[in-house]
């Protein structure tokens, strides 16, 4: 941090998250091939590409969730603020790099309130839970909808509400980076719009990497976009440039809907 203060230029130049030559496998399947890219602090990177192109595997490598799958392994480096995440404790890492999954996965035995603070309570963090519940639910625009029934079971909520609750739950741990694996794919258009608004708000504070199969969504919410195809990073640039003036033929074919 002291370094950053004395050399502000270097700070903005260094990405929050830097991936270097990352490879990942499931058993013998080489799912992610030699990927290098950086994500700036407080920006949104969208990852697009056809199904099975390694998008999800890639983000799961960033908080080391990938290695929990039986038979999975990875090689290469992922730097968070210059520190290799594969050198730190994965449990700690995941508190700094939060994740929201494709389908809402609220804890069914817990109330709405307990779901929000689950990460804190399960990690035995003492804090002002009430304040955190209100803050994160307000951030995720859920507060007004649920403030009168915080003790109700979380599974009574609608799918869109559950997904925003999952985001609130991830935010309560105060991560620096938020990974989102197609967070709106199981939701209806209205709920999707709310999530997108939310992402726009969140990037003021957080660094966000979002996987999406919806190109319109990538255009609406992201600053930069990376296009993956068959485990390879084909193109990476600002969202506007990638969708309007793609450099690679494959990218152009994909964003214009010729395949995928």
């Amino acid at each position: 941090m002291n370094v950053a203060l004395s050399t502000p230029v270097a700070d903005t130049a260094r990405p929050k998250l830097e991936v270097q030559k990352l490879d990942a496998w499931f058993g013998n399947v080489h799912a992610v091939k030699d990927i290098s890219l950086g994500v700036d602090a407080r920006s949104v990177l969208a990852i697009i590409g056809p199904s099975g192109c390694g998008k999800s595997t890639f983000v799961r490598c960033l908080n080391r969730m990938h290695e929990l799958t039986p038979g999975a392994r990875s090689e290469g480096r992922v730097l968070l603020d210059g520190e290799d995440v594969y050198a730190v404790d994965p449990v700690y890492l995941r508190r700094r790099v939060g994740m929201v999954f494709q389908r809402p996965n609220v804890f069914p035995t817990m109330s709405i309130r307990d779901n929000v603070v689950a990460g804190l309570r399960l990690n035995r963090v003492r804090a002002d839970y009430e304040a955190i519940v209100e803050r994160t639910l307000t951030q995720t625009a859920l507060w007004d909808e649920v403030k009168d029934r915080l003790d109700a079971s979380a599974i009574a909520l609608s799918g869109g509400q559950q997904q925003r609750l999952c985001i609130a739950r991830a935010l309560a741990v105060e991560p620096e980076v938020l990974l989102m694996d197609e967070p709106a794919s199981a939701l209806d258009p209205i709920a999707t719009a709310k999530i997108e608004e939310l992402i726009d708000e969140l990037k003021q504070q957080y660094t966000i990497v979002i996987v999406t199969h919806n190109m319109q969504q990538a255009i609406r919410i992201s600053d930069k976009t990376a296009f993956f195809y068959m485990g390879v990073l084909i193109e990476h640039g600002t969202t506007q440039q990638l969708f309007t003036r793609p450099e690679r033929r494959e990218t152009e074919d994909y964003v214009t809907g010729k395949f995928g």
Binding site: N63, M65, L68, V91, Y92, L93, R94, R95, R96, G98, M99, F101, R103, N105, V106, F107, P108, A118, G119, L122, N123, C166, R169, A170, V173
Partner: peptide, 22 residues
């Protein structure tokens, strides 16, 4: 569901506590 286990692990909860508490 596996997704619940993952949700807990992704919050930085240790595996053993995930098994017991979630």
């Amino acid at each position: 569901p596996r997704s619940l286990r993952e949700a807990s692990l992704a919050l930085g909860v240790p595996a053993w506590r995930t098994s017991l508490s979630v």
